[in-house]
Design a protein around this nucleic acid. Sequence first.
RNA 1: GGGGGAAUGUCCCGAGCGGCAAAGGGGGCGGACUGUAAAUCCGCUGGCUUAGCCUUCGUAGGUUCGAGUCCUACUUCCCCCA
Length: 429
Amino acid sequence: MSEIASQFKSEFLRQFAARGCLYDCTDPEALDALFARERVTGYIGFDCTAPSLHVGHALQIMTLRRLQQAGHKPIVVIGGGTTKVGDPSFRDEARPLLSEAQIETNKAAIRRTFEHFLTFGDGPSDAIMVDNAEWLDRLEYLPFLREVGRHFSINRMLTMETVKIKIDNDLPFSFLEFNYMIMQAYDFVELYRRYGCRLQSAGSDQWGNIVSGIDLGRRVENAQLFGLTTPLITTSSGTKMGKTMSGAVWLNPEMRSPYDYWQFWRNTEDGDVGRFLRLFTDMPEAEIARLETLQGAELNEAKKILATEATALCHGRAAAEDAAETARRTFEEGAAAEGLPTVEMDWSAGEVSGERGWTLRQADTIVKMSGLATSRSDARRKIGEGAVRINDVVITDWKKEFSVDQVDPQSGAFKVQYGKKKIVLVKPV
RNA sequence: GGGGGAAUGUCCCGAGCGGCAAAGGGGGCGGACUGUAAAUCCGCUGGCUUAGCCUUCGUAGGUUCGAGUCCUACUUCCCCCA
């Protein structure tokens, strides 16, 4: 795509392609001309299947950010309506229906994620956020079928990738899910009507749904709409990005602290540093080109920059720098730095009974309380692996007892460490 | 409507003569090696008050000293016939 990049006339597409964000788009020349000519309103939809978005969505959010930076107008569409239908594209199982209450909860939590990435407001290129439940909830079945349904060819829908996968593999595929693409197509048209929105962007797996919306727009509104997709990001060793550690890498600070988010980026593979800097930060190309040439251990400096820049976008500059500083003190000085994730532990209450209960707690209990182990058995297993340290001392016996006054005097907490990277302060209260 | 098959450790795939906490693989995590990287080798990958106990194999019953394994009903999914 980089040769094509230089051919674009519009600032937005040239930058977008040069950074490796562009996978495909409809009618490139016309879209390029549109971007060069006027302020374009574009949207991306986010469903509310979880109480937070994750790094897999980061590239989509960045796309909206770049639109805004180029002077265009981004719309964040929260999929309060489409989530009730459920996107069939991912799972090969029928996904469980979320309750409306659950969707509401998720929706509220997701909204906040965008605050650091985009500027919202009433200005011409200010971002706005809308919930597609606003129109989808109110659809009436028969009028909708007659207005919209007649434009959808079953013959053609059956040839679409996501549908074919279902059918070819004999996977369950309900009529409800089948309607997802129709809802998404209708969204696009509705956004065109309400906001003059001409562009929809998404990951490359959404291509079919985007094109459906464009077709529908032409048929019912005689509008020329455009689609733009971003590549699926994998790491250079071939795994899908972000599915590491203990599950998804959440963007919501309550679900993953800025410190842990920073760590996620800090642990980027060597071969991905330059690409990720282009995709996930605003760093200028010249600077990235320089950082990329660093060799061996020097590349760690580039990783720190990547971590801080990516974290700043998601959690704010101050939180990112705190995380960087905490990491520096922790890894480069070995100190039990304050910014480490901290959990409070009710020292006096609890399971240990009788005479010793009030002052002494066993190592396995402390590790469990830290959250680094999911259960006491898990804590014991991990201690058995020789991977657990408390106050920098390797624990080999899960029965080892600690008293309150053995906390690290600096932090007033136990520094509990699992492996080399996961450190939590456990503060007795 | 009729006939046949399938549901396994809640990350996934997948074995399982009636004695099973349940083979194997992927993924994930940890250790060694490094640079908080990759690759490679090794280990771990139900819970608890852990020489023991408890709960897991779609759901509910039943037969057995004992059931993931046999029987019955139900649920869901797939295939074939109509």
